[in-house]
Design a binder for these strands. Structure first.
Length: 125
RNA sequence: CAAGUAGAUCGCCUUAUCGCUGUUUCGAUUUAUCGAGACGGAGGAAAGUCCGGACACCAUAGUGCAAUCAUAGUGGCUAACAGCCAUCCAUCGCGAGGUGAGGAAAAGUGCAACAGAAAGUAUGUACAGGUCAUGCUGUAGUGAAACCAGGUAAACUCUAUGUGGUGCAAUGUCAUGUAAACUAGUGUUUGAGCGUACACGCGCGAUGCUAGAGGGUAGGCAGCUAAAGUUUGCUAGUAAUAGUAAACGUAGAUAAAUGAUAAGGAUGCUGACAUGAUUUAUCAUUGUCAGUAUACAGGAUCCGGCUUAUAGAUUUACUUACUUA
């Protein structure tokens, strides 16, 4: 799996997101939390992933953008290492539930933890 | 030099690797995707959404300014404005300059510290005058003002001028699937149509089937960036600004693109060392090393303003009373 994160791998459909939040399960590694749901896509892709930061915790657009970029970057660099032995399709949403700012190193570390617990949970089923 | 005043400009840079986004060229095909290359990709406030427009739709016979809101010396600029420029007046400052909610008090209503008997449907004291009699008249005393006016409109009010509403989630357009209703055709045992790959055959089969129009959900496209444009020169004007010539062609995302990592550099500050000057413990230049800092903040239809946030750097013009040398 490559390191890219193209458009078709992004979670955009409002329907899917609603479905995800109402039916999905979650794993977390504070300050990150991931909601996931097994699903089927028309397009040729295995995962659809979105990223979200609460407007309540981060009032300024600059801060929100910053954290979303870090989350995307962390996901992009680490997904290859953990997703290779997963066969079915998933919808994912990664949330930042902390209230303070952060840097790339800690996001990277936590992202690894998060993806590892996710892949373990999924492969058990 | 120092302390100030008013403006203007900038607001980190480079390289490598891995990514994001738009345009375009070439190649491949599974004809809407993939691959490769080239070029472009946040701000001075993009922010607050406070004014003014453009644009769009809705409403509207016409008028209007009742109500509401806004504005308020004078003159000018502008597409327009509550903005900008010039200027008068008031006021603050030694000054450069700052600030102004600067229309009207003889239309009316209200309000007014201290002093004073009393600031108005009031009339006290002393003296003098006058009367048949009486605060009837004058003076003294308080106060800015004593019955006659004045102040106050960041009190009501009056005057003049202006104001239809909603906003790009506007609006237009394409449209998979699907429910009910509508129109047309066709059909109910002489059977439409469906299934069985096709024909035959067999099976299923009835307000059904087909078509149209309609509606407009998920989503796509247009609107969507060439603009009251930017820079420079010249001309007119005290200026805001206008005219003219040349050059430039400047982000278009949509769960929302500018990022991550590494290395190096720049600038400021602090410290140490060396160097220079002398008043020999201070000043100051240059260099080296170490540490530290680099703010406020992210487009969402587009412009002109205003307001607020902002580490630090550069620069122009001007002022300086007291104090110190």
């Amino acid at each position: 799996m490559s390191l890219s994160y193209p458009k078709k791998e992004k979670l955009k459909s409002q329907k899917l997101i609603e479905q995800l939040f109402s039916e999905g399960k979650s794993v977390s590694a504070y300050p990150l939390r991931m909601v996931y749901l097994k699903s089927e896509f028309d397009e040729d892709t295995q995962f659809k992933t979105g990223v979200s930061v609460s407007k309540r915790n981060f009032k300024k657009a600059v801060d929100r953008n910053r954290i979303k970029r870090l989350l995307r970057e962390g996901y992009r660099l680490n997904k290859g290492a953990y997703f290779n032995n997963i066969s079915s399709c998933y919808t994912l949403m990664i949330l930042y539930i902390g209230k303070d700012g952060t840097d790339f190193d800690s996001v990277n570390k936590k992202m690894k933890q998060l993806l590892e617990t996710f892949s373990k949970k999924v492969s058990q089923q």
